[in-house]
Design a protein around this nucleic acid. Structure first.
Lengths: 136, 136
DNA sequence: TTAACGTATGAACAGACGTGCAGACGAGCG
DNA sequence: CGCTCGTCTGCACGTCTGTTCATACGTTAA
């Protein structure tokens, strides 16, 4: 639709109409940034594991560290990141800090992504790997 | 609730039972990596914009570059990343390369995350910002 | 109180990321 | 053929990220 604009001599190759209509669809900048921030937070294997583990029951830092196979310091750092995004919440009991999920959305988001990953694994994973080289 | 295990002298503070049960819930390593990879791919403002823009109609590299306000080279680089994840697909028409979404899941994933972001914006955004400093 | 523990934080490092630049490639036109 | 256009890719640069190390904080026990 409106593709005939491309034939107008003033428009060389950038189709201004398409650019404008696409721009209208874009979320406002701060929503884009928030969106990317959430995804970036989920885009780390360690944090994914933490969230998966906490989806069952609350765990303390040392349990998580043991589970993840990394230092308690690194675990605490990552929990701090997750806290800053309000993805996890913690409860102090003496010296221990028990962490749990603070966001129901995230769990469904992860499950949805997991479905996607599994589909890709079943029918297109190896194809995907191959395309990384020959996509051009 | 089973917390009494922590009192057994052999278990100092790491609750092995919890660690084991949590480990059972974790997806296999390669699924975790795929999951994180997908999220990390979505965790960049430029790529989020590209995917949002392509959710309406296919666009060529130069349109996207114009829309994003970055060079066509940078745009091509990002499209390459998205291609490697099979999130976008492209169609050659002469010299032009028209890109479109290759994955229906991703769009719903983004919309779900957007819902989450908007909820957070309405009732807790500024609180979240503040917590980044005082979370401890 | 002193000491040990669980956790949190800051500095510093290696590695990864996003972008621009320069050049290469294929397609279309003279 | 040569030339331009649209796109792609290798390299370099600055920035960001995830981890470890050392250290500090708050709690519990002696």
């Amino acid at each position: 639709m409106g593709r005939k604009d491309a034939d107008v001599c003033e428009i060389y190759y950038v189709n201004e109409a398409h650019v404008r209509s696409a721009r209208r669809v874009l979320s406002p900048e701060r929503e884009i940034l928030s969106l990317a921030e959430i995804f970036r937070t989920l885009g780390d294997p360690t944090r994914v594991k933490i969230l998966q583990a906490l989806s069952v029951e609350e765990l303390c830092v040392c349990d998580l560290a043991k589970l993840l196979g990394i230092s308690e310091s690194a675990t605490s750092h990552q929990l701090r990141v997750l806290r800053s995004q309000k993805l996890v919440r913690f409860r102090k009991e003496g010296k221990m800090a028990f962490y749990s999920l603070d966001d129901a959305h995230i769990d469904s988001l992860m499950k949805e992504a997991l479905r996607h990953v599994r589909e890709g694994t079943d029918q297109g994973r190896e194809r995907t790997e191959r395309i990384r080289e020959s996509a051009g």
